[in-house]
Design a protein around this nucleic acid. Sequence first.
RNA 1: GCGGAGGUAGCUCAGCUGGUAGAGCGUCGGGUUGUGGUCCCGAAUGUCGCGGGUUCGAACCCCGUCCUUCGCCCCA
Length: 453
Amino acid sequence: MTLSTQPYKGARDFYPEDKRLQKYMFGKLREVSERFGYQEIDAPILEPTELFLSKGNQEIIDEQTYTFTDRGGRSVTIRTEMTPTVSRMVAARRQELAYPVRWYDIPNLWRYERTQRGRLREFWQYNADIFGVEGVEADHEIVVLADQIMQSYGAKRDMYTICLSSRKMVDELFTQYLGLDNTQKDTLIRLVDRIKKLPYESFVAQADAILTPSQRDAGVLDKLLALLKVTKLQQLPADFASQPAVVRLQQLMAMLESSRVANAVFDISLMRGFDYYTDMVFEVFDTDPENNRAMFGGGRYDGLVGLFGVEPVPTVGFAMGDVTLQNFLESHELLPKLHSETDAYVVLVGDDMYEKAQPVLSELRRMGLNIAVDSTGRKLEKQIKTAVKQGIHYALFVGETELASGQFKLRNLAAGTEETHGLERIVSIAKDRRRAGDVPARAEDDEDGDLLG
RNA sequence: GCGGAGGUAGCUCAGCUGGUAGAGCGUCGGGUUGUGGUCCCGAAUGUCGCGGGUUCGAACCCCGUCCUUCGCCCCA
């Protein structure tokens, strides 16, 4: 019986090039989040199972989580999402936090699911939440943050669409305008959530099946179908235009427009599943027809913190999975060619140079460069190939001649150019390159986009 | 839970209607002593996913099983 070299089903190994890519993606997330004043948090990967039951879905716990009993007889679950944990953390310090609280996190999560494209069992998920702001300003900030993250990867506005709606508004439309009871409303929400996946006739038939005979006679189905054709808030029934939820969404759309988020659109069919959202909801879609599914989203959920027995705290947030994000960046060719964290690979020229080169290596490292040395004594060709293969930007040649003169050849492996300098100059060249960073091939200045410059 | 596709050298795969394996890339070495990504020469490497069956003989046929992958269901 030989041991398998495969990682566990649905989980990934991160070799240096994979980890480098993850660091790039997470780096942007951290950079943009912090630019908006969000602070990073983290928490245990294990939580008491009850925490994930608060949403009331026993089925999910039974079938789609890693749940086990610890040695103390407690039922624990590997986190499947971060929101309950973040809510718990806010509730724990409900009184003492300085609001508005702006937090973000990038936890690894586990879900026991059948794997498929874009969906693994272990994945990372970025979350950003703002707590303590009832006003529409928080909704605006969260959507702008999501948008700016996309911009930071070099995404163009025609590559993604930000769809917005309001759960509260939809609830009111379905109950007050269509006259459905709560059970019918919930069923219909689930159905509308899948509308883009269903043939239209099938949708109509299933919607009709929800209605009572008297509702059918009253023409509720036609009212619903007309409602779903609405693409602008102004097209909603006139007596609904002044509803607070509608006014608020209108306000949000206007604010986004003046923030130049030109790809934000109203989408009445957007439901965002069947969960804890209480008002604004949004989802970001890839416009590429090959990958026309929701990439990520979020919304306002004012009720979660209150589940911990403290006064509720208004909250807006969103979450973004690493796998879908990576798929998006790959398909739009937005990933830069990433180089090694090692600035230079020291190629030793001549025999017995390893010891003699040590002072130079120490000096370069002391001055802040990341330096790897080839200690194999192989011919130069092999040493250089190793550096190239490891994605290191520069090769630095160290031989008797260089040690004697204090002048070293620095070879730019990507460009194939070579210059000779003293150590100080070499350090500054390498640091300049490091600062310039790795830039996506397709990222150019976006006049209407990146607020961060 | 359901359905499609597939598992052959490190990787991508070929292998016609059964006669115990190949290519490209990669790896390693060399093309004489201080330079890669193009060139030339040479070398190593596989229990053909696993178990069983049919057969004189199976990578190829049959059964089972495990795994990978795509989709459905679900999706916090």
